[in-house]
Nucleic acid binder design. Structure first.
Lengths: 160, 160
DNA sequence: GGTGATTGGTTGTTGATACAACTAAGGTAG
DNA sequence: CTACCTTAGTTGTATCAACAACCAATCACC
């Protein structure tokens, strides 16, 4: 059995604080969206990914990859969002196993309505608390972490 | 209606990456603990907070504050952990509304067994991907974010 | 072109969390 | 001491997500 290498004081301090951020920030992000727009952060992100897709259209499995969702989870969320009139499901002509998901006009309006409040929340919770240098550092740190967390870049539409 | 101030390229890039980390890292932390120790990260954190408390004892509501849990959530988790023999609930003598939660010997053993693997996971997912400077930066950035996210320092036992 | 393996997506079931209602104990004012 | 408010914790109910089982369509291969 190998000896555990514990953390230095500096590592310990950074990790404890960062872990607290991981715990608190997602909840704070969700809170504003559910309160102001009756959308979960996942709902919002799903609609946002569709809004950025060419033709506001993605296949279900492609949308699942971008949102980091399992297919069962996305399936039920889409059923609800479809019922609310924000998305529409249509069979894919090219591959009849697949389903195309499109953002409806109402869905587009919803994203447009929700985005400013969400961005303002991101500003007030994150960006406004940091110096420009720290924002750049955070980008570099996050990129470094993503090389192990998301080596394929699944969550980034522009890549691969 | 005020005009929305959108994000600069630098802000946008940093935020998109950081948001992906917020999505992926907690799941990766949970995965190792559930796979290797059959503990959720919340279970582990709960036991860890108890293990660091004087006498391995905390009142339920104090434990809830340190773990950022609602009382109902903690109540049910404690019921399960009690059934597994890791914690014990005893009435508080001083205030008979309150309940003291103590870490049993089995619970202590569990934390001792689980900690090395968890720490190793934190290393491989976070610390090893960063330079010493970046670790220091991450600590400072997290501290800055916590001034708005957790102004009372609820999650830090040492403070107020 | 038929057989078997794979992929795309939905649904059954179970465990987990939130909100709200509830019980019980403690504090406070008359 | 009694009525009322607050605090500590548990439990009822509904929603959400995960895993697994399932159906349907496509592909690989002979």
């Amino acid at each position: 059995m190998t000896e555990t290498r514990w953390l230095s004081d500096d590592q310990q301090r950074a990790w404890v604080r960062f872990a607290a951020v991981l715990e608190l920030l997602p909840a704070a992000l969700d809170l504003q969206l559910t309160r102001d727009e009756h959308l979960t952060h996942f709902d919002y992100f799903t609609l946002a990914m569709l809004s950025e897709a060419p033709g506001r259209l993605l296949r279900t499995s492609a949308l699942a990859a971008r949102t980091n969702a399992t297919l069962p989870r996305l399936s039920r969320v889409l059923t609800r969002l479809e019922g609310e009139g924000f998305v529409a499901r249509t069979p894919c002509e090219a591959d009849r196993r697949a389903t195309n998901v499109t953002l409806t006009d109402a869905g587009w309006e919803k994203v447009v309505a929700a985005a400013p409040g969400h961005v303002e929340n991101v500003r007030s919770l994150v960006l406004d608390a940091l110096t420009p240098e720290q924002i750049t550092q955070l980008g570099a740190i996050s990129a470094a972490l993503l090389t192990t967390l998301d080596p394929q870049g699944k969550m980034f539409a522009s890549e691969a």
